[in-house]
Simulated assay, not measured.
Amino acid sequence: MADVTAATIPANAPEHCPGPESSTAGKASSCEGCPNQTICATQARGPDPDLPIISERLSGAHKILVLSGKGGVGKSTFASVLSQGLAQSSEVGLVDVDICGPSVPKLLGCENEQVHQSSNGWSPVYVQDGLSVMSVGFMLPSDSESVVWRGPRKTGMIKQFLRDVDWGQLDYMVFDTPPGTSDEHLAVVQLLSGISGAVLVTTPQEVALQDVRKEIDFCRKAKVPIIGVVENMSGFVCPGCQGESRIFYPSTGGAKKMCEELRVPLLGSIPLDPRIGRACDFGSSFLDTCADSPAATAYLDIIAQIKKIVNHQT
């Protein structure tokens, strides 16, 4: 796991930040007062020689980022179900770039698998027909082992996932990212070319929507197309009577109101079903085990919209 240093957008960057790769980085008038001015002014610049390799290896795949400004909104669950849904008719690679909190192996029931080396690079873990996965969780000695890495090492790990993994010919690549807008997100944006777009996951309450607004701003600054917003846990559906109750009250109008204000698509709302959590704990496919549930119907409708949007781009 070699350390690979990559340029990152400075924290607390001014509105007119020239970017860390610019020849005026750290020297422009807008850089005055930025806490990372010295770093930007002195860092090495030039094209990354690995970018053409990554671009060629991942050519042909629609690249979808799953983002959430807030933790605990079900982003990793959505990324896993999205990947399973897409894999029903396509070849899909799921990349877990949540380096410090890799939960995808547990969600897909493959936490005891290991990554193997082949003549073509690392071999991803195959979960089902059409679905392969890569996560740092496969490389840890135990589930309780912490990853205490600084930004450059996390960026280097993500680069290895893209450059050194033998993904084969994929139709879709789904990226499960950590909360926020930090090193992991910047690494993915800088290393990938032709990102199809981002799906932003939120819950209805204002405390989650506040962070999603920041995520939307990040996408616009980083020039990542926004596929749409998914409102997760929008209500509780009783498995017995199918009655629905509000758990997270949308005091400011929920995702629908936010999407109208910021002019981004709302892909749909997914009700809270306790069987989703059970499927995640046991690594089973919720779409298979509870195909008749309202939540599964909502998932499939959203997945169909995402496929339509990204395929329309080609």
Rank of each mutant, 00 (worst) to 15 (best):
V207D: 06
M139Q: 01
A187R: 04
T202C: 06
L170H: 05
S118Y: 03
G137V: 01
F175N: 03
S144C: 02
T177H: 15
L191N: 01
P178V: 14
W167R: 06
Q114A: 14
H185F: 10
D211F: 07
D176F: 11
R153M: 15
L191Q: 05
P179Y: 12
L192Y: 00
L162A: 09
W122M: 08
W167K: 11
P178Y: 09
D164Q: 10
R153G: 04
S118A: 05
S193D: 15
R163G: 14
S182K: 05
P124L: 11
V148H: 09
W122Y: 05
V207I: 13
Q128V: 11
G156T: 00
E145Y: 12
L162I: 12
V147Y: 00
F175K: 04
A208Y: 01
V136Q: 05
L131Y: 09
E184R: 06
P141E: 14
L200Q: 02
S132D: 06
S118K: 00
V148W: 08
V147R: 01
A187L: 03
D176M: 10
G180I: 00
K154I: 03
L191C: 03
D164M: 13
V165K: 03
S132P: 00
E206P: 01
L170K: 15
T155S: 14
I195T: 06
Y172H: 00
V125L: 11
Q169V: 07
K154C: 09
S132A: 10
D211M: 04
P204K: 13
Q114D: 09
Q128W: 09
L170G: 01
V115E: 03
E184M: 13
L191M: 03
T181N: 02
G156W: 06
V188R: 04
L140T: 12
I158K: 06
S193L: 09
L200D: 15
Q190H: 12
S196N: 11
A198E: 03
Y172N: 07
G130M: 09
P141Y: 08
L200A: 04
Q128Y: 12
V199I: 06
K159E: 07
G197C: 03
G168D: 08
S146E: 08
V207L: 15
D143Q: 05
W167A: 03
D164F: 06
S135G: 10
L131T: 02
I195S: 07
S182C: 11
V201D: 11
K159T: 03
S118P: 02
P141S: 09
V133C: 03
E145K: 14
S142N: 13
G168M: 05
Q128I: 14
S144R: 02
M139C: 12
S119I: 12
D143K: 09
D129H: 13
D183M: 12
D171I: 05
L209N: 11
D183L: 00
I195H: 02
F175R: 00
Q205H: 14
F138Y: 05
N120V: 13
S144A: 11
D176A: 07
S193T: 12
R153K: 14
V199P: 00
S144Q: 10
E145Q: 15
A187V: 06
L162W: 01
P141K: 07
R153C: 15
V148C: 15
V133T: 02
V148N: 01
S182M: 10
S132L: 14
V174T: 02
L186M: 15
Q169Y: 05
Q128A: 14
I195M: 07
Q190V: 02
M173D: 08
T202R: 02
E206A: 09
D143N: 11
